[in-house]
Amino acid sequence: MWGFVATVVLTTLLAGSQGMGMTRMNVPYLLGTMVTPNRNQAKLIGVFLHFINGWLFSFIYVAAFQLIGRSTWWFGGLIGLVHGSFVLAVALPALPALHPRMANEQYGPTVARQLEPPGFLGLHYGIRTPISVLGAHTIFGVILGAFYVVK
């Protein structure tokens, strides 16, 4: 349940930071275009995929809480920070290799109707992208840490 809530907040924060002009990164669009090139459908499918991702990652957080025998907001936040850093430093730069519609920085001169690569720390999607990703994932962890009860 808290995984769902935390994912709702995470998705909302990322969408909000896009709306506020902090980043161009639209996570549902990024994920949805792995499945379809249709922009509108991609966003819908992407929201669904992001929720699945959020739930799956919640299990990792829960496993960490169970391992140390307690869950606190700050420990959840710390895992979120590590999670966000991993997304920025490893997952996003590796995305062009996994994403069927994303160019990489060695792409060219052939052009195709492709998505731009995120680059290191997602900086190609706006210089404040790292702030929005780190902030959203930290809050994701804080929610899970604060509300999950270790059994």
Partner: peptide, 10 residues
């Protein structure tokens, strides 16, 4: 024009 295009972004 093609030489001045940046293919990864278009």
């Amino acid at each position: 024009l093609k030489l001045l295009s940046y293919a990864p972004s278009g």
